[in-house]
């Protein structure tokens, strides 16, 4: 994509802006407009009259689902090949690049000679992960993604923040423990 430059004119320092008063009223006009327009919209909603925009952009999160951006980096996910085996070849590139040192992989020989190596265990400590996405960038075989669309990762113990391979592959659902 070509880089475009848009020159923004420096606002002139006129007497009107220097004495501040005019600008204050202009600012007040903006905020008052928002206030009254939104109040009107809230009132229309309360009265059940349709056809107006909502008075706020708030997402009432725990009740309404969180809206994530298309490119949001969420929880990691390990991908599988067409035959169902994990794509990961245990090259340890992700473990090496991880700035938070939160990936632990142990490797073993793969039954498929063309693959040679595969991961025996693959743990990510999400309690330490900084969600930088380097692991996804580093992977040569596209085995790890951060698109599980899951952001509700908190747990009651540090141990519970560590996700293992079946959980990351989606073969097993993570069962968190309750409060200690």
């Amino acid at each position: 994509m070509a880089i475009t430059v848009r020159a923004v004119a420096r606002p002139a320092r006129t007497f009107a802006t220097q004495i501040y008063l005019v600008e204050v009223w202009r600012g007040l006009a903006v905020t008052f407009r928002h206030l009254f327009v939104n109040l009107f919209r809230h009132a229309m909603k309360a009265l059940g009259i349709r056809g107006f925009l909502p008075g706020s952009v708030t997402i009432q999160y725990p009740e309404d689902p969180a809206v994530l951006g298309k490119r949001a980096r969420t929880r990691h996910r390990l991908l599988k090949r067409d035959d169902g085996a994990p794509r990961c070849t245990a090259c340890l590139l992700c473990e090496t690049i991880c700035p938070a040192k939160c990936i632990r992989i142990t490797a073993e020989n793969a039954p498929d000679v063309a693959v040679e190596k595969r991961a025996k265990t693959f743990d990510i400590d999400l309690g330490m992960c900084v969600f930088c996405g380097y692991c996804v960038e580093a992977c040569p075989v596209d085995a790890i993604h951060m698109d599980a669309d899951d952001v509700e990762l908190s747990s009651y113990s540090r141990q519970d923040m560590i996700w293992n391979m079946p959980e990351l592959l989606g073969d097993k659902t993570k069962v968190p423990s309750g409060p200690a």
Binding site: H34, L35, N38, S56, T58
Partner: peptide, 10 residues
């Protein structure tokens, strides 16, 4: 509330 409404919040 006033700050919220004028900033398009609840």
């Amino acid at each position: 509330k006033q700050s919220a409404v004028m900033q398009d919040r609840i």
